[in-house]
Structure formats: C-alpha cells, structure tokens
Design a protein around this nucleic acid. Structure first.
Length: 257
DNA sequence: ATGGTAGCGCTGCTA
C-alpha cells in the first residue's frame, strides 16, 4: 500500500499537477493540505475519473485538507471531536479509514512568530491532536497521521539551524510536541529509513531557495509501529517541486508491504 | 544585496 501526503498550496491552481502526479506516482491514498477551497468547489469528479474516492474539509480561501483513496474511504470525520466549538472553523484535520488503515490528513498551524498568540495556538493544536490519539486511537492498530506539521523534527531537517534559531518550526516546544506523538506510538517513517540531512519537503518560493537547497523537512508520515515495521520504501518527490506552477512543497510517499 | 514569490482577491494578509 502506497500512502502519500502533499501540501498542494491551492488545489484550484494545482489540480493539473495533482492529476499528473497521481497518474505516475500511483498512490493508494493521498492526503492533501492547503486546498484553499470550499467543500462545494472541491473537484471530486476529477479524482473519481482517476479511480479515487475523496473526502474534503474546506473553508475556502485558507487551509483545507483532503483524503483521496482507491482502497476504500469510510468513517470520515472532519475536525476535532473533543466538544470544543471551533471544531472545523479552521479546516485543518480530516480522518478516514482506507483499506484497513485509519488515516489522518493534518495541516498544523504555522505559528508565525515564536511567542505570538499564533504560536501558542499552534502548540495547543498539536497537543489537541495528541489528546485525540490518546483518547480515541489505539497505538497497536494501523494508523497514519500525514501532513504538513510545520515543524522540522531535528536539525538535520533544516538547511541552516543557526540562521533559523529562534524562529518557528524549530523551537524546542514545537519539537517536543511532535516527539510526544512519537512517544504515543507513532514513527516518522521517512526518518526511520533515511538518516541523512538535507532531505527537505518544503522550500520558500522566494530567493531561489529550492535551487539553492534551502529547505525544511516539515511534511511527515507518522505511522504506528505495526505499519512502520512493514515500511518497504519512502521518498520525497523533489521532481514534483520543479517545472511549471509547482507547489512550494514536494509530495512525500511511503510504501507498506 | 537583510532582498525575494505565490495565492487569494482587491488591499493587505498568509505562508
């Protein structure tokens, strides 16, 4: 089973690239983030034509997460279900069961500046996600959390730790929030397979960062141990960051036997 | 050289 995740940065603009990528990458499941679409504008028919069922949680303009699957799509849940009022006001979380795997597509808040209210909200959001796992999920089951975490788990995942020190994505509190999910039972499957640095999934559009190798690895597939033990391959598809109208993120894919 | 681009949507915000 091939599971992939891709922050597409506007599905309206990126649909041709996503269709092209589905045709050659052939994922069984694709989690998308930053669709920037209302649910009514989600191009479900375009994906159905390629053999994928789809679920979408959107708000228009900002955010928006989706799951495509060609191995079944059931028990769809949008947003948190912990009883708070803002469950889907920001469309950042979507769950579905696909081919026996509980799949989460997540778009973690950016945080903007360390210490800002947005940064505090980011930490709270990550803790809320962990609480969802603790209260509603089984670490011995088959589950993946895929998406743009807006956190680079360690210094190997950033192009220059010195320059980025003090900013978001690399702060100890953010990294501890991701580590807490590993402690619950999730494995960063890309890092399980590759220990090298400079393997990034996002590059700023500005200043030629992609071509200069200035990126971050912030898109993750976190899998429970029973799945991670069956990992056969993983890849960040940097080719998809090239060419006409690319997203600023590359897709990440992982194969499970 | 302390810059720069992209998307949304129409002025400035978000990333």
């Amino acid at each position: 089973m091939r599971i992939a995740t891709w922050n597409v940065n506007s599905l309206k603009v990126r649909l041709p690239r996503v269709e092209e990528w589905l045709a050659y990458a052939q994922p069984d499941i694709l989690c998308m983030q930053e669709t920037k679409l209302a649910d009514g504008a989600f191009p479900a028919l375009a994906f159905a034509a390629l053999g994928y069922d789809a679920a979408h949680c959107g708000q228009g303009q900002w955010n928006g997460v989706a799951i495509l699957s060609r191995v079944g799509l059931d028990d769809v849940v949008a947003g948190f279900t912990d009883g708070s009022e803002d469950e889907t006001t920001e469309a950042r979380l979507l769950w579905a069961t696909c081919g026996g795997v509980r799949v989460g597509s997540v778009y973690v808040p950016n945080g903007r500046m360390v210490g800002s209210e947005f940064y505090e909200a980011k930490l709270a959001w990550l803790e809320r996600l962990r609480q969802h796992l603790v209260t509603g999920c089984d670490p011995s089951g088959s589950l993946v959390v895929c998406g743009d975490f807006n956190v680079a788990p360690d210094d190997r995942d950033v192009w220059d730790p010195t320059k980025l020190h003090g900013g978001t994505h690399v702060s100890p509190a953010e990294r501890e929030a991701v580590a807490a999910m590993r402690e619950w039972g999730l494995v960063d499957v890309f890092r399980q397979r590759y220990s090298e640095d400079r393997l990034y999934s996002w590059w700023d559009y500005r200043a030629g960062d992609f071509h200069q190798g200035r990126g971050l690895r912030i898109d993750l597939i976190l899998a429970t141990r029973v799945l991670a033990d069956r990992l056969s391959w993983a890849l960040i598809d940097r080719f998809a960051r090239k060419g006409k109208l690319p997203s600023d993120h590359a897709p990440l894919l992982a194969d499970f036997e």
